[in-house]
Amino acid sequence: VLHDLRQRFPEIPEGVVSQCMLQNNNNLEACCRALSQES
C-alpha cells in the first residue's frame, strides 16, 4: 500500500503517507482521499 501511495502522491513526504496509513488502518481508498486533500 505504501509503495502504491508513494507513486500516486510523489510530492507528499513518506512520513506523512505512513502516518496516514496508520490513521486509516492501511485502507488504500481512505488514504487516497486523505492524501488528495493534503496535496
Rank of each mutant, 00 (worst) to 15 (best):
E11T: 08
S18H: 15
I12C: 06
G15W: 13
Q23K: 09
C31L: 00
C20K: 13
H3L: 06
Q19V: 08
C20G: 08
L2G: 04
H3A: 14
Q7K: 12
S39E: 11
E14Q: 08
Q37G: 12
Q37N: 14
P10H: 00
D4A: 12
E29L: 09
S18D: 06
Q37A: 13
P13K: 05
N26Q: 06
S36K: 12
L22V: 12
L5V: 01
A30H: 08
L22W: 08
M21T: 00
S36H: 07
S18T: 14
R6S: 07
L28M: 08
Q7E: 13
N26S: 08
L2F: 15
S18F: 09
N26K: 02
D4N: 11
L2P: 08
I12S: 01
V1A: 06
R8G: 00
N26M: 07
V16R: 13
N25A: 06
I12D: 00
E14L: 10
L2T: 09
N26R: 02
N27L: 00
D4C: 11
L22G: 08
N26V: 02
A34G: 03
M21F: 05
F9D: 04
C32S: 08
S39W: 10
P13E: 09
L35Q: 04
C20I: 14
Q7V: 10
C20S: 11
G15I: 10
G15R: 13
A30G: 04
S18K: 15
S39A: 08
V1R: 08
Q37W: 07
N25W: 01
C20D: 13
V16Y: 14
N24K: 01
R6T: 06
N25T: 02
Q37H: 10
L5D: 09
L2E: 04
G15M: 11
L35H: 06
V1F: 08
C20Q: 09
S36A: 13
Q23G: 03
E11L: 06
N27H: 04
R8C: 00
V1W: 07
N27P: 01
C31E: 06
R6K: 14
V16I: 02
L2A: 09
L22T: 13
V1D: 13
E38L: 14
R6Q: 09
Q23D: 15
N25P: 04
L28T: 03
S39Y: 12
C20M: 13
Q19H: 09
L35G: 03
